[in-house]
């Protein structure tokens, strides 16, 4: 598989604060990656380093297997970080033309990309007259101008109203559908969960996890159980070898699995021991629960 970006032990210190610590991961072509982390975890700094606007303290990174200088590699990248930055006195089309000049691509695609983000009718309006949502959409159009190998989005829905968020998400899903590699940094989990295949989780600049979203947690899921005799249920569960931690919650129990087990097997086991369940639900942790679990494990 073609590698687009490799990070090796990347570290960034701002004075006494270490914003990014020994971070290593690889971005491969065709996947949609999410970088997850609470606010201030070093997501934007990491992206700033690979995008040539923040100087690294140590370690290194490589675009496209290191065959090109960073600034030339960036011509094949589309990126939006934090808020959209354009020249306020130029119109949308003029701003995009400038980007074409910098990226050394032909300006033919301006209209096409403006159409994707729904700004074609505003192409001759000055940038300073745009709302935040429109500015953000223009930024996406600008990032798409060179038909990038990878699209990097840093908190693309930050500060938008629900309608704006929805529009941006739709655009991202549309682009992901075309097979473009995407790297999406966010602290909004459902955003990542909806579009990403792979995820990198960082906290305080350290990597906690990187890999597929569905392989993120080694856990085999958990059962939510209810029965009239809750004490007997707890005793029976304790005896079962496949069940690990049991957490009582109001009038039901949450039993975490040590190894894979089907609900039928559990139901049969309990029934054979004379217990009838009133509720049996098998669930996997949502990304949010997994994320919280991961981040808490380290702090505990």
């Amino acid at each position: 598989m073609e590698t687009i970006l490799t990070l090796n032990n990347l570290t960034k210190r701002f004075g006494p604060i270490t914003a990014v610590k020994d971070l290593s991961f690889t971005i491969e072509k065709g996947n949609v990656y999410g970088i997850l982390g609470p606010n201030g975890s070093g997501k934007s700094t990491t992206l700033g380093i690979v995008l040539n606007v923040v100087n690294k303290t140590s370690g290194d990174f490589q675009w496209f297997e290191g065959n090109e200088s960073t600034h030339n590699a960036l011509k094949k990248v589309g990126a939006i970080i934090e808020r959209p930055n354009f020249y306020p006195y130029m119109t949308a089309a003029q701003n995009l033309k400038l980007v074409c000049k910098i990226k050394d691509v032909s300006p033919d695609k301006i209209d096409e990309k403006l159409k994707i983000v729904g700004l074609l009718d505003r192409k001759n309006s000055k940038f300073r007259t745009f709302s935040l949502g429109m500015k953000q959409r223009l930024a996406i159009a600008s990032a798409l101008l060179n038909d990038p190998e990878i699209l990097i989005l840093d908190e693309p829905t930050n500060g938008l109203d629900p309608q704006g968020i929805h529009q941006i998400r739709e655009i991202i899903t549309k682009i992901a559908g075309l097979g473009t590699t995407i790297l999406l940094a966010s602290h909004l989990l459902d955003e990542v969960e909806k579009v990403c295949t792979h995820v990198v989780i960082i906290r305080k600049g350290e990597k906690l996890y990187s890999g597929r979203v569905d392989e993120m947690n080694a856990s085999h899921g958990f059962f939510e159980l209810k029965a009239s005799d809750i004490i007997k249920l707890q005793e029976l569960l304790k005896k079962h070898p496949s069940i690990g931690k049991i957490v009582p919650k109001e009038n039901c129990l949450t039993a975490f699995l040590n190894e894979p087990m089907e609900p039928e097997t559990l139901n049969t086991y309990l029934f054979e021991h004379g217990l009838v369940l009133s509720q049996l639900v098998k669930r996997k942790e949502s990304l949010e629960e997994q994320f919280l679990q991961l981040t808490n494990q380290i702090s505990a």
Partner: peptide
């Protein structure tokens, strides 16, 4: 933005 767009 200029730097991100690929200007050194």
């Amino acid at each position: 933005q200029n730097l991100i767009d690929g200007m050194s």
